[in-house]
């Protein structure tokens, strides 16, 4: 028994080193963002002596990160709301209602899982251009929704399957229509799943770069992640400002992670075990 305990402590050594390797790059970036250019060139590693926010405000104001931030916020919020709405509607119908063709429709939704954006990038860009949706908020929102809807429908369907039919029967006896059941019963009962799936979708959309790059070509509509990629060329000589821009893009995600870690991990785990 003691041997087992010892070996567990031995394992803790590589595991802590790995934890350090996981966290250090971010700490390094935070530290650099606080430095002046001169400090950075003189010593990259030394801890900054003061918390300087100049770089952050430079990145925020003069690079256009503020506008990119708002663009991302608009697109991500609309996408997530739509995803949750359409995903829960379809999930409810596919899990609890009996109707002709339901399994075919479910399979149709799942088929979307096997078509990554890279594969349909060219025709999708063409469709968006033909419908004048390219380089507009609704255009990117639609692309995001199409991208993440199969996964959302899948998770909502498996979640709603765990709700006993009696609950719905009772609601029907009380005189609710199918839509009433959706609004008054399924939406509130679905909250935990909606939260998990919503956060995951928000992360996916917020972090995306390829779809945003293809669908939002103009600088005016650029999303935050595409904005970060443009930093590289502009600030290759001003590393602290560059690091600040990266940090601005990372902070919302870090905050979400700190508070909602559990839901994110649950969402990922649900996606795997339900398969």
């Amino acid at each position: 028994m003691s041997r087992v305990r010892l070996s567990r402590w031995l394992l803790a050594i590589p595991m802590s080193l790995l934890a350090l390797a996981t966290i250090y790059p971010l700490l390094f970036t935070v530290n650099v963002a606080m430095k002046t250019r001169r400090d950075y060139i003189l010593d990259r590693f030394a801890l900054t002596d003061t918390l300087r926010w100049d770089n952050i405000s430079t990145a925020w104001n003069s690079v256009g990160m503020d506008r990119y931030f708002v663009n991302s916020l608009i697109v991500v919020t609309s996408s997530v709301v739509l995803l949750l709405l359409l995903g829960s509607m379809a999930g409810f119908a596919l899990s609890q209602l009996r109707f002709r063709g339901s399994s075919a429709l479910f399979l149709g939704c799942l088929a979307g899982l096997f078509v990554p954006f890279q594969v349909i990038m060219v025709p999708l860009a063409r469709i968006m251009a033909d419908t004048a949706l390219i380089d507009t908020y609704p255009g990117l929102v639609l692309v995001f929704v199409a991208q993440f809807l199969p996964f959302t429908v899948f998770l909502m369907t498996s979640y709603y399957k765990t709700i006993p039919r009696e609950v719905i029967d009772a609601a029907r006896i009380d005189g609710n229509s199918v839509y009433g059941v959706y609004r008054r019963i399924m939406l509130p009962l679905g909250t935990p799943a909606l939260l998990s799936v919503g956060i995951l979708n928000a992360l996916f959309c917020w972090n995306d770069v390829l779809m945003s790059l293809v669908m939002m070509p103009s600088a005016e509509h650029r999303t935050l992640m595409v904005g970060v990629t443009s930093l590289r060329g502009q600030y290759s000589n001003d590393i602290p400002t560059f690091a600040s821009g990266v940090l601005i893009a990372a902070i919302p995600v870090l905050v979400v992670y700190l508070f909602l870690q559990r839901q994110i991990a649950d969402g990922v785990a649900a996606g795997s075990t339900k398969g």
Partner: peptide
């Protein structure tokens, strides 16, 4: 309830694949 989801997936995922 299913139509909007199916419509989006078919028009913006499956049809572009064929296209």
């Amino acid at each position: 309830l299913v139509a909007p989801a199916i419509l989006i997936i078919v028009v913006l995922r499956l049809y572009p694949l064929l296209l």
